[in-house]
Amino acid sequence: MDLVVAVLFQLIYGIANLALISLGLAIIFGMMRVINLAHGEFLMLGGYTVVVATNAGVNIWFAMLILAPLVVGLIGVIVERLLIRWLYGRMVDTLLATWGLSLLLIGLVTSIFGASTGTTVSPPLGTIRIGDYSASGYELFLIGVTLVLFAAVYATLKLTKLGLVARGTMQNAEMSSALGVSTNRIYMITFGLGAAVSGLAGGLLAPMTGVLPTIGATYIAKAFITVISGGASILAGTAAGSVLLGGVNGIFAFLTGPTFGEVALLVAAIILLRLLPTGITGRFFRKSI
C-alpha cells in the first residue's frame, strides 16, 4: 500500500514537473503558434537569478517566487521588442531567431559565470514520510505550485479584461485588431508573461538540478514534445500533454529504469501526432483554453 502511494506520488510529481516546465512555452505557442526555441534558456536564466540572488543574501523564497519571474519576464519583453516583433508572420524565421537567441544566451551566461556551476542552493524543505517510504517535501511543494500556477493563468485568461482580449487575439488576430485591439501589445505582454512563467519554473527547479549555462537542453526536449502533443490550447493542452506523456514516462521509467523513460515518451508523442497531427486539443476539448 505504502509502495503504491510512493509510486503514485512520483508519477504525479513527474506529471507536475512536465506541466511546470512546459507552461511558459505553451503560453507563447498558444498565442503566436511559434515554438520559442530559447525556452530552455529562459528556464536557465530563472535558475541563475535564484542562485545569484541567494548568494547575495536574498531570501530564497523571495528569489524563487518573485525575482526569477520578474527578471526573466523583463528579459522576455526586451527580446520581443528587439527581435521577435520584426518577424511576425514569418514563422520559420521566428523559430530560427529564437534559436539564435538561445545560443546567444548560453554564450553570454558562459562568458559571465563560467561553464560550470559555482555554488548551488539546496532544496529548502525536508522529507516527508509515506509509511516506510520517504518523499521530498519540496517535490510536494512543486506539485502545489504547479496547480496554483494553472489556476492563476486560468483566472487571468477567463476573468480579466486582458485575458478576454488575449483569447480574442488567439482565436482571430485580424478580427481583434479590426476591433481596435493592439495585437502587437498583446503579443508583447504574452511573450513577457510566457517568459516570466518559464523563469519561475527555472527558479523553482534550480535547487533540485543546479545551474549550468547548458542546462536548458535537458528540459526542452520534454517541454517541446509536451506542448506539441497538447496542441494550441494553453492550459488544457499542457495539462493533457503532461498527463499523457508524464504518465507514459513515469510508467516506463518505473518498469525499465530511467534510460528508456524519455524514449517511451518520445515514441508515444510521435505515434500520437500521427493520429492527431494538431495535438490533443486540436481534436478534443477544442473550446477550452
Binding site: 527581435l83 524565421d93 539564435g100 554564450g107
Partner: peptide
Amino acid sequence: NLVLGVILIFFVL
C-alpha cells in the same frame, strides 16, 4: 555559442 547566436540572428534578420 555567442558568436554563432549572433551570426544566426544577423542572417535571419
